[in-house]
Design a protein around this nucleic acid. Structure first.
Lengths: 229, 229
DNA sequence: GTCTATAACGAGATAGAC
DNA sequence: GTCTATCTCGTTATAGAC
């Protein structure tokens, strides 16, 4: 029983992985909009109906790929943070940002899947939320550590944003001053602006030395939150 | 002669516009990857081969849509800048950033076309460059005005970025200090990070009051370049 | 000269019968 | 699970209308 079940489960895991691998290949070749269960099945020598044993619909396959991508970049961010765990917060911040950028350059189509144009007709279910939050949580952790050590202040908030900044910060990063929380969320979005512009070609013929440019930019992002060397 | 030519030219302009309008409709419905000449022709009661009088290929139609989108957002930015021409640089900066955001929210699919995931199999020709540059040029103009009046300094450059910052600034915004030029390019990318995150759903359940949040973030972007109230 | 329509190509996806 | 008939697509050649 045990071995039989184990073997069955193992086979299922392997086939699921093979399906996702092939789907990722098609993602790269044709884009997420054209991802088709049939094409994946054909490439694997299966029949389309057989795929439904593993993914009940095309959207479920897409969701699995999205969660995998978020987990992959989140894991890269967490690993970079762990590798720099002894260092100053600013150093950890830049290490995490650079890990995100490196992951994006190494997995451009998966980056596009999660941070690029939404797939027409698809809306991500709530099950993607925990994976999607991982990079943000790493950044929050770094800033929280810095705050507990040095006491960050952050730039003064305009009156119109005060309540929202307090709500956001209580939700996402309780304990941080609302000025810091709002600045952190903005920096998070801006980080992906830098990555996306490089990846999607907006920096072509504009920025040549992308790595030092990026490093300097994210250091300044950190400064904007109050992280100092 | 004159009227005959005028009528012909007018008809051509009108049909060209109708083709692009229908193509934009399909862009919104299905995404750029699935834009099809035949479907556009069908919707217009034409035959696919007739479209080739107006656009020599599907990619040329896409290019026209891309240029139109860049021109549209560029025009919005220029108009906002002109409307605030008497105001302080910081105020002009935020007016332009808010105009870009408003344009993006009003034209999400065209935004996705130019700033989102690249269309698989399509590479934008050089003819898109002038239109693509317009928003950036508006921002450069504002910063240049501020520099000529107040003399901006910008944050110190790390040695590894010095040469690249000088090259970039000489190319894009001659006359500005390289510190300011590099900060400006980064702010340009970060601006679209904020817009893209809002538009593509990354701010869902994170940022509720987007307008004040955005305003505060772009003011801080301007501060990072040296623009003060 | 300027345009539209017909027909066809090769390639690929798809639906349904078997 | 396989096979086939029928769709889609971009693109071109050709013929004829204005």
């Amino acid at each position: 029983m045990r071995t039989a079940q184990g073997a069955r489960a193992r086979a299922r895991t392997e086939i699921t992985a093979a399906i996702k691998d092939e789907a990722r290949r098609q993602l790269a070749a044709e884009g997420a909009a054209k991802l088709s269960l049939r094409a994946v099945a054909r490439a694997l020598g299966m029949v389309s109906s057989a795929l439904y044993r593993y993914f009940p619909s095309r959207d479920d396959l897409l969701t699995a790929l999205i969660i995998d991508a978020y987990d992959s970049v989140g894991e890269a961010a967490e690993a970079a943070n762990a590798a720099a765990s002894g260092a100053e917060p600013l150093e950890r911040w830049t290490a995490v940002c650079e890990a995100v950028r490196r992951w994006a350059l190494a997995h451009p189509h998966e980056y596009a899947l999660i941070y690029g144009t939404p797939v027409p007709g698809y809306t991500a279910p709530m099950t993607t939320v925990p994976a999607a939050a991982r990079v943000g949580l790493v950044l929050i952790g770094i800033v929280r550590d810095a705050h507990e050590r040095d006491g960050l202040t952050g730039p003064p908030l305009p009156a119109e944003l005060r309540a929202e900044a307090e709500r956001m910060t209580a939700d996402l990063a309780p304990g941080l001053p609302p000025e810091v929380g709002a600045a952190l969320v903005a920096a998070w979005a801006q980080l992906f602006g830098l990555v996306g512009f490089e990846l999607f070609g907006q920096f072509n013929r504009v920025v040549e030395e992308r790595e030092p440019f990026f490093r300097h930019a994210v250091v300044r992002l950190a400064h904007g939150i109050g992280l100092e060397a």
